[in-house]
Simulated scan of single mutants.
Amino acid sequence: MAMVRYLILRTLIFVGCLAATWLLGLRDREDQFLAVIIAAVASLAISAVVLKPFRQQASAAIAERVDQRVERKRAASGDELAEDAELDRPEAATKRDGTSDFR
């Protein structure tokens, strides 16, 4: 939800900046591209300052979801990881008589 809120606020800032450029007189067909560029740069600068707390909340929410996903994968594959760890140990490659399969 935090990411959606951040996205909506950022879009509103861009639309506001675009409206401001239109009100400043960049209304003609040939000025529209310039108006969009100015609005994009202005909204980027404004968003970087004004929306910092919202961006941090969104980032924390994403990090929390990633951590939960990793924990679920670890819990689901806990037995497989234990088997892999058993096979990865160096003494697993050595036979009981002390000889190794590797040459």
Rank of each mutant, 00 (worst) to 15 (best):
I13D: 02
V36G: 07
A58V: 08
I62Q: 09
S59E: 10
S59P: 12
E91L: 11
D84M: 03
I8A: 10
M1P: 10
S59I: 09
A48H: 15
S77Q: 00
L12I: 13
A35P: 05
R74M: 04
V41G: 15
A42R: 04
A58M: 15
A45I: 14
D84G: 03
S100Y: 12
R103W: 09
I13A: 00
D31C: 11
R27E: 11
L26K: 10
A39Y: 05
V41L: 07
L12R: 03
Y6C: 15
A63R: 11
D88M: 03
D88P: 02
C17A: 03
D31L: 10
E30R: 06
L87G: 02
R69L: 06
G78T: 03
D88K: 00
R103V: 11
V49W: 01
L18A: 05
C17W: 00
E86L: 03
V15R: 00
G78A: 00
A58R: 05
D28L: 15
Q32K: 07
L23E: 04
A60P: 14
I13F: 02
K52G: 15
A82T: 02
R27M: 05
T94G: 03
A39I: 12
T11C: 06
R69I: 08
V66R: 15
A76W: 01
V50E: 08
L12K: 05
I37V: 14
P90T: 11
A45F: 03
V50G: 11
A40C: 08
W22I: 02
A19C: 02
S100D: 06
R29K: 09
G16L: 01
D97K: 01
G25F: 10
E83A: 04
T99N: 04
R5A: 07
A20D: 00
I13G: 00
A42M: 12
F102W: 10
D31R: 09
A85Y: 05
A61E: 13
A61C: 09
I38C: 13
R29I: 10
D31E: 14
A92F: 15
F54I: 14
A35F: 08
K73F: 13
R74F: 12
A35E: 12
A75L: 01
I62A: 06
Q32A: 13
E64Y: 07
R72V: 08
A61Y: 08
T21W: 03
F14T: 07
A85P: 01
Q57H: 06
V15G: 02
V15K: 00
W22Q: 04
E71Y: 10
A82K: 00
E30D: 12
L87H: 02
L9V: 10
K73G: 05
L34H: 14
D28S: 10
S77P: 00
R29H: 08
E64K: 07
A75E: 00
D84F: 01
M1W: 13
T11R: 01
D84W: 03
T11M: 08
R89C: 09
R27V: 07
L12G: 04
R74G: 03
A63C: 14
R103P: 14
A58K: 12
D101F: 11
